[in-house]
Nucleic acid binder design. Sequence first.
DNA 1: ACCTGAACACCGTTCAAGT
DNA 2: ACCTGAACACCGTTCAAGT
Lengths: 201, 201
Amino acid sequence: MARRSEHTQAEIKGMILNAAESIVAKEGVQALKVRTITADIGYTVGTFYMIYGGLNALIQELKGRILDDLAAELQGVNVDDDDPEQAVIDSARRYLMFANQHYHRWRLLFDPQQTDKDGLPDWYQQKVDVLFANIECLFQRMTPEATEEQARQGARALWSGVHGVCVLSLTGSLDAVGINTIEQTLDLLVQNFLYGWRHRH
Amino acid sequence: MARRSEHTQAEIKGMILNAAESIVAKEGVQALKVRTITADIGYTVGTFYMIYGGLNALIQELKGRILDDLAAELQGVNVDDDDPEQAVIDSARRYLMFANQHYHRWRLLFDPQQTDKDGLPDWYQQKVDVLFANIECLFQRMTPEATEEQARQGARALWSGVHGVCVLSLTGSLDAVGINTIEQTLDLLVQNFLYGWRHRH
DNA sequence: ACCTGAACACCGTTCAAGT
DNA sequence: ACCTGAACACCGTTCAAGT
């Protein structure tokens, strides 16, 4: 036993990440166990700790990946034509779609157990900021007379709302509703808010 | 040892509930352990299982209590005068205040780990419905020309949004902001939404 | 009948021991 | 240097054994 060197450290790290993503995607974080991960890739527990300091470090990296995927999804909206309002609506729909299709991974991003005590790392916060910058930019274009700070606040308020609709609807905390009803709820929130936002400026 | 009979089953149950509430309020659910609870009340693990089938059963009951407290908080808004819009705004502010002051207990209501696989019990769903009925009623009064179903959808959409603001702001997922900034964000969401709601009907 | 505490299963983490 | 697996700590849950 020991000293197999069948894979480089980098390869093992990749295998761990893939195995972990797969488990989270199928069963959620609560099913993510060190023993399961290492068994899945043909290694034993100890090997995991050669690569990661602990389960939290792995989860942190997973969250980064998920955030990147979410960002890619939101990048897909057409922000170049002259209808910023429609772009906001599209963004919200894409957010719901991502949350619905990648439910467990999306949940991980906001799992209360998985928030590091010493706050999130800088690179993580930066990814969040980039994600938000697009929405803020659309708000600027919708209401050019608003200050940058107002656009920030507006984007934050609406996006929190969009997130709330996804959380309560998809987790079934509200009650059981189908996905198209959820989309209606989302549109209702977004369109009423945007109407108010436009006419109050 | 054994057969102390210093307390009735009902008394022990009350002691467990109090100890559990106290732990959750101070440290959150993740700190709630059977061994800690029973040690706090001067009993041992086995006693816990005389009263509850397991930790989940206790947590379920805790959630019911928290929901009652939240309902009481929201009952406090003045819905009798002729300004239903202001009553909605007040309700939203009270919801934020409750979430902020009873952070860990409020979080428990939406903890993903703590949602029973076979859905929530009927009595729980009923408490949620009662809570929502008030908001729906206010929507009816704001826009009497809307159908009941529209009022339901509107209340659901706005309340999801309100919840989202509380979640993202209080958990620091967005970024670090003070409580008054949170209230501003909340008001922005609610007022813009309501403006749209009123003028689009 | 009421209560204890040893015991089991499970899981994160460590580390002495192998090659 | 790389990897194993026994071992420890922690925790939910069970149950034989005490009074």
